[in-house]
Amino acid sequence: MRNLYVPTKAVIEKIKTQTHDTKTFTIKPANGEKFDFEPGQFNMVSLLGYGEAPISISSSPDNKKTFDHTIRFVGSLTNTMEKHKEGSIVGIRGPYGSSWPVEEAKGKNVIFVAGGIGLAPLRPFIMQMFHDRDSYGKIQILYGARGTGEMLFTDEFNEWKKHSDTELHLTVDKLEEGEKWDHTVGVVTVLYDVAKLDPANTIAVICGPEIMMRFACRSLLKKGFYAPQIYLSLERRMKCGVGKCGHCQLGSKFVCKDGPVFRYDEAKEFHDTLL
């Protein structure tokens, strides 16, 4: 029987700064084996001495040699990640969890609604769609962050917009005094009017702080969307990632195993969420 709790050694190949407190780590399994995952899944990132944390994968699923974790430095483990250098060893367990509705979305328009670090788990899905552009309809990416300095993947935005029938709409909650910004100011839902959303033959995928997802989902309903058209990714405390430690349970589900991606009609029935 395989020991679920033993992390696999992996090497940090590249580190890229995203914001003042967030970096993207490109990681490769040390044994050279390929790494297969579905967009929306996560790994338990393991640092001996510091523990483990569930962190979503932010790279394209087409790349089987390496994978990315875009990590915000907010706790002991992630702060220690910050000190890691290219060539450092980390432990990885995964990939775990459910994925974005990649198949279901084929032939449909897809709206991405992301808040802050929430763009990271959506990026594999976006990359997948770009890779297989003809299988999908219109792509609308609505991205909100607290400030301009908090936005991830900004250097890729021009590339993204070059894809056919692809819109990228940006907003920030607040501007610094005198700051120049050609986009919208306000919470992410203000982009719903800017982007002229159409519920017909469309699915929406949402990721961000839970309170943001609450408003993002509810506003979509007001725009004529049905709950089963909406998918979101939940964050919960996890110690194991494999449905054993019990922390992430909601209703009869384990967020680690049955989620983190849930359809909104299911997720909104759970108690103890902000949705």
Binding site: G49, Y50, G75, S76, N79, T80
Partner: peptide, 8 residues
């Protein structure tokens, strides 16, 4: 130990 390792 945790303080020396910058850990909670």
């Amino acid at each position: 130990v945790a303080t020396l390792m910058a850990k909670k």
